[in-house]
Design a binder for these strands. Structure first.
Lengths: 165, 165
DNA sequence: TTGGAAAGTCAACAAGGCTGACATAAAATC
DNA sequence: GATTTTATGTCAGCCTTGTTGACTTTCCAA
C-alpha cells in the first residue's frame, strides 16, 4: 500500500510510509523534550500540565472567560474548574465577576501567577530558542508552517487570533 | 516586552519572547491535532495513548525487550506492565522468552496487533502527509530539523538509531 | 415571567502516571 | 558453589486529570 514511484520533477514531495512514521516519532520525542522543563518546575510547585495550560492562556488573554478557556483547552468544565479552583485558592489567578454579564468570570493572573508563568515559560522559551538557533532560520519557518498545517481548523483559529507571525 | 529591532543582516534569527511563546503554543495546538485521530481509533477499541506508544515501538523494533521499551517510553515498569499485560491478554502482542538470556522477554505484534497498528498509524500518516503537502518540501525539512533539536539527547539517540533520514 | 445559557458544585469513576515492597528466574561474579 | 545483580512481573495504594450525570444559582433575553 502507498508505494510511490520515483519523483519525476523537482520540488515534489514523495512521502513513504517510513518517512511519515519517522515524522510521527519525531513529534513524540520532541514533545517530550518540549514539556520536560515545564514539568520539572510545575512539580516543584505541586502543579501539573493542566495548571500550566490554564496559566498560559490566561496570560495570553487577560480577562478571558471560563467558556473561552474551555473552547481552547478542549476539556470539560468540571476538569477545568478543579484546576482553576486550586489556582484561585493559591492566589495565582483572580476571578472577577463579569462587568456586563455577571454570570461570566473574567480571569487574570495575580503577581504570584505572573511569577510562576514567567518561571515556566522562560525555561520553555530557552529550550525553544536553543532548538531554533541550532536548526537555523529557514528551518524555523518550515517548522511553523508544518505545525500550523497540523492543527485542527478550530484550534488554528484560536492560534491565529493572537498576532502569530 | 522584548521588542527587537529589525534584523540588519539576512539569515539571522531574531527571536522575541512573543515569537517564542507563539512557537510553544503552536507545539501545543499541533500536538493536539496530531493525536486526535489516533485517540479516536484507540477509544473505539478500548485503549489509550499508552497502548499506542507500546504498539508503535514494538512494531518499529520487533523482538525488543521490556527494558528497552522502558528506556524509550520513560515510564515505570509497573505502568508499562499494566499496558503490556492487557495487550498480551487481548492477543495483540506476543511475549517470547529470550533465546540467549532467558530473563528477557522479546515482544512482537501478532496479526491482530499489526492490524490495529496499521489502522492507527495510517490515520496518523494521512494527517501528517496532508500537513506536509500543504507546507511544502522545504518546510518539512525545517520541521524535522527543529524537532530533532528539541529532543532530549537521550531520546534523540533512540530516534536516530532507526534510519531516520 | 419564564426559558435557557453560563457558571459552579458534588459524586463517582477510569486511565495512566507514580512509589514501595516483594517474588522469581537466570545470569554474572566472587 | 554461594552470593549478588539483573530482568521481569505483581500487589497495593496514591495522585492528576480526564470523563459523565445530576443539580443549583445567577441572570440575560425573548
Amino acid at each position: 500500500m502507498a508505494d510511490a514511484q520515483d519523483p519525476p520533477g523537482q520540488g515534489l514531495l514523495f512521502l513513504t510510509d517510513e518517512q511519515l512514521r519517522k515524522g510521527a516519532e519525531a513529534m513524540f520525542f520532541a514533545y517530550r523534550g518540549f514539556t520536560a522543563d515545564p514539568d520539572r518546575i510545575l512539580e516543584k510547585h505541586g502543579y501539573g500540565r493542566a495548571h500550566h495550560r490554564a496559566i498560559h492562556f490566561i496570560r495570553r488573554s487577560p480577562g478571558t472567560t471560563v467558556n473561552n478557556l474551555l473552547a481552547i483547552l478542549g476539556v470539560t468544565k468540571q476538569s477545568l474548574n478543579r484546576v482553576l479552583r486550586t489556582l484561585i485558592e493559591d492566589g495565582l489567578v483572580e476571578s472577577r465577576v463579569g462587568a456586563r454579564d455577571k454570570r461570566e468570570r473574567n480571569l487574570f493572573l495575580t503577581e504570584a501567577g505572573m511569577a510562576l508563568e514567567h518561571e515556566i515559560s522562560s525555561a520553555q522559551r530557552a529550550r525553544l530558542r536553543a532548538a531554533f538557533l541550532e536548526a537555523g532560520p529557514d528551518a524555523v519557518s518550515g517548522f511553523r508552517k508544518v505545525l500550523e498545517a497540523m492543527m485542527d481548523p478550530e484550534l488554528r483559529r484560536h492560534y491565529k487570533r493572537t498576532g502569530g507571525r
